[in-house]
Every structure is written in structure tokens, then in C-alpha cells.
Design a binder for these strands. Sequence first.
DNA 1: GGCCCAAAGTTATATTGTATCATTCGCCCA
DNA 2: TGGGCGAATGATACAATATAACTTTGGGCC
Lengths: 158, 158
Amino acid sequence: MGARRDADKPHNHDACIDTAIARARTLCEERSVQLTPIREKVLQIVWRSHKPVGAYQVLDELARTHKAARPPTVYRALDFLIAEGLIHKIESLNAYLGCGEAGVAHTSQFLICRACGTAEEIVDPKLDQALDAAAKRARFTIERKVVEIAGLCSRCAG
Amino acid sequence: MGARRDADKPHNHDACIDTAIARARTLCEERSVQLTPIREKVLQIVWRSHKPVGAYQVLDELARTHKAARPPTVYRALDFLIAEGLIHKIESLNAYLGCGEAGVAHTSQFLICRACGTAEEIVDPKLDQALDAAAKRARFTIERKVVEIAGLCSRCAG
DNA sequence: GGCCCAAAGTTATATTGTATCATTCGCCCA
DNA sequence: TGGGCGAATGATACAATATAACTTTGGGCC
């Protein structure tokens, strides 16, 4: 699992990025899919902070080193990274966030602070079970779960 | 609470619409806010089905009877209806859905079928408590909860 | 060499959502 | 009683997000 840290606490973020990139390389290797330079660069850009980042922000960053970059360049990379479980899309913000649990089966659940913009991914089995139970009661077959809790993180509320 | 019905089962949908409009009028009256003709019309359009409807679909419909309608016309009406708790936005679809529990405090939780397009609003206190507990553990102050479960409803899976 | 395929390049456009300023209209009240 | 205020709407323009469709590149393989 590596060193887990809360997204809203100060930390040496380079370690987050390095860990994420290293894990992504390993996972793509294992799965025989290509973490191409563009895809890796986009992953790095998304991981530059714990704040969800918009596709066009990614594009702006990417274009600094990759002049040919266009919207499809970015969306293709984002789609790949999502498919491989390396990033998540935050639906309520139309933005993207590095996945801190890449390679581990989990539901994405987020705490999104409107003040500092940070989104923390949480893994709460009870919550996950509650989702499953609610779906089961309605005989609903789950394919994807979106849980996004917006508000104020402890630092911003305190 | 009135007659609750599952969105994915056949039913006389006119009753859904009539109930929703009647309740909306009552609530707006009580709150001294104006359910203007445009707002009521938009509410009716959103309620024409149990499938989330896009803002520009609403615009197309609205424009049939209201030639001056433009995007801001629709977004203003949608914003008003959301603020009054009469409709919900489905974030993962960028679309809007009538609220079946208008006037009653509740978290919006949805089961969204990718086959038939129907979204059913569910009210599951256990699930809601699980969200509260998860946030509390992180000392996170909740302002808004988004729960959208996508997959196949019982009719489409069966 | 020639074929195939995945990835990326390229151009154009679709979809969703806002900013901004002008206009209308009912209401209050000085 | 008319003038100002505010809520709602009209109107124009544009921003932000996302995809379609076709072309080109480049590596692996026969």
C-alpha cells in the first residue's frame, strides 16, 4: 500500500508523484499496455497536486513540452489512465485526480473541499457495502459508483 | 409522501407530473418564491420522463412554446429549481431530473440505468449515515453529497 | 518490402455552461 | 403619481468541456 497520507495535510508531494508513476509503470508492464511518454506526462501533470485538474489545464501544461498537443491528445491519455485505474474523474467538477489506490480494487469516494480545492480519496468499506445493499434492494446491477462529498476539509473549516 | 413508484416500472406518468407540479406550487407559495411560467414549464419538461434530460434538450422543448428562449433562460430556471430542491442535477450525465422527494430533507442518491436511461432516486438512510460517518472520520464538513450508481436496472438486466 | 495495429497528429465541430448588459414589470411609498 | 427598486427575463456574445473523423507515424512481424 505504501505510505498513505491525507491529501489535505502538508507533505513532500514529490514522493506522491514518484510513487504514483512507479506504480503506474509496474501496472502497465504487468498488463502489457503502453504507458507512452504522453500518457506518463499527463499522469504526472494530474499528480502535480491533490486538486482535481481540468482537461484544458492539463492541455496547457502538456503543450509546454509537447507543442502538437490538442484536446484529443489529452482526452485520449485521460481515457487510457481512467481505464487503467490510474486516475479518476471527479464528475461534479469535470476534473481529474490521481488515484491513490491504483491497482487495488476499490470504489472511488471523494471528499472535496470547496475552499482549498483539495480532493481526498477515501476508501470506506462500510460505505461501499451500503451502496451495494441499496442497489441490491432495487435489484440493480452496479457497474460504476460515484460518491463525491463536497464541503470543507478539517483545515479549512477549523 | 403520496404515491411512491419505481421509476423503472410502467405507470401512468401524467400522475407523476401532476403531483410534482402541484407540490412545487405549494412549496413556492409557502416559501414566497415565484414559480413563474417559464420555471413551471421547465419543471414540466424535466418531469416528462424519469430519464435525466440535458439543458439543451430542455431548451429545444421550451423553444416550441417560448421563442425567446436561450441558454440563459434555461439555466436560470434550472438553477432556481435546483435551489428550491425541485429537481436534481445528475453530475455524471450533465443532465437534470425531477425530484421525487421535493420538500423533504434528503440526500440525493440515484440508480442510473445505462440501457434504458432511467434514473431512480432512492432514499436510503443507512447509506446516508455511512456518508456522514465517513466524513466525520476525516473531520470533513459536508455541504453536498453526490451519490450516483450506474449500471443496469432490474428490467434491463433481467 | 509490405502488412497490420496501436498511438498520435490534425482539423473541425459538438455539447455544456457563463458573463454581461439591456429591458420589462410589478410594487412600494414619498 | 411617478419614480425608484428589485426580480425576472431578453439578448448577444463567448467560455469551457468534449468528441468525430480522417490522416500519419512507427514498431513488430511475416
